[in-house]
């Protein structure tokens, strides 16, 4: 039941992000009366410069989802490659790759991104890239240990005997067996990336030209949303983050738990 709920929500959020232009009641950059309470015309009120908060929220899903999913795709691909090659070829290559992984694991990632963002002009693409390039390590470890198991299986050995090329074996024999561990890992990476993006935006390191949910919270706080008790302003983007992350994480965990039962 938990995962069906999660699946429906994830699909819903993705649809909202794709169809933002059609479903949002206003243009998020249009200005109306500022600081309006929720009313018929503006269901979640307006912000300090009069933007409709609901429309901002709907369009904000784009930036948030792009960063979260984009970073997770980069991280998963990197982790998959490193883990696959490490586990398949073993030996010196494995030592080097796992050494690099261990080193990356120890980099304080968010402080590093803060430092980079302080020097560079921040954009969602930069944040996405930085998160993706720093978050592949645990995927690589998981993929590697699974590859080590799979490569010992009979059909892989027979594929080797038949003289198939390594590349062929890795991508058509081993890869399909790795998906069950990669899929939940991917979902958890989306979650971490989104939480990180929201946190970075909270420091004002977000991309003002493409407002994400995290940046909306940041604006609501500096522009007095909390002190003026305009809870609909800062609470709604926060709840959107929690809800989306919750649904994707619950999908990931239920996937993992089911997989364990099947593998038993």
């Amino acid at each position: 039941m938990l995962n069906r709920f999660g699946l429906v929500l994830v699909v819903l959020f993705v649809l909202i992000a794709i169809l933002a232009d059609i479903i949002s009641p206003h243009d998020p950059w249009d200005r109306f009366e500022p600081y309006e309470k929720p009313n018929r015309n503006h269901i979640l009120g307006t912000n300090d410069i009069g933007n409709d908060i609901l429309s901002e929220l709907i369009h904000g899903s784009r930036a948030s989802l792009i960063v979260g999913i984009g970073a997770a795709i980069i991280a998963t691909l990197l982790g998959l490659l490193v883990g696959l090659f490490s586990g398949y070829f073993k030996g010196a290559l494995d030592e080097i790759f796992m050494g690099i992984t261990d080193i990356f694991l120890m980099i304080p990632r968010i402080p590093l991104i803060i430092m980079l963002a302080a020097f560079l002009k921040s954009s969602i693409w930069l944040i996405m890239l930085a998160l993706g390039l720093l978050w592949w390590t645990s995927t690589a470890r998981v993929v590697r240990s699974r590859t080590l198991q799979v490569r010992e299986m009979d059909y892989v050995a027979s594929a080797k005997c038949l003289g198939f090329k390594n590349r062929h074996i890795i991508f058509s024999d081993i890869l399909p067996n790795i998906f069950p561990v990669v899929v939940p890992k991917f979902m958890l990476t989306v979650a971490t990336a989104m939480i990180s993006e929201a946190s970075l935006s909270f420091l004002g390191l977000g991309d003002p030209s493409m407002k994400s949910w995290g940046l909306m919270i940041n604006f609501a706080l500096i522009k007095g949303g909390l002190v003026n008790e305009m809870w609909w302003w800062y609470l709604s983007p926060g709840l959107c983050i929690i809800l989306f992350v919750y649904s994707i994480v619950s999908l990931g965990f239920s996937f993992e738990e089911r997989k364990k039962v099947n593998l038993r």
């Binding site: 939480i195 929201a198 909270f202 800062y234 926060g238 983050i241 929690i242 919750y246 994480v249 619950s250």
Partner: peptide, 13 residues
Amino acid sequence: LAVYSSPPYFLGI
């Protein structure tokens, strides 16, 4: 799971 999915600073707020 809900706490897991929340940015800690948002819980703080």
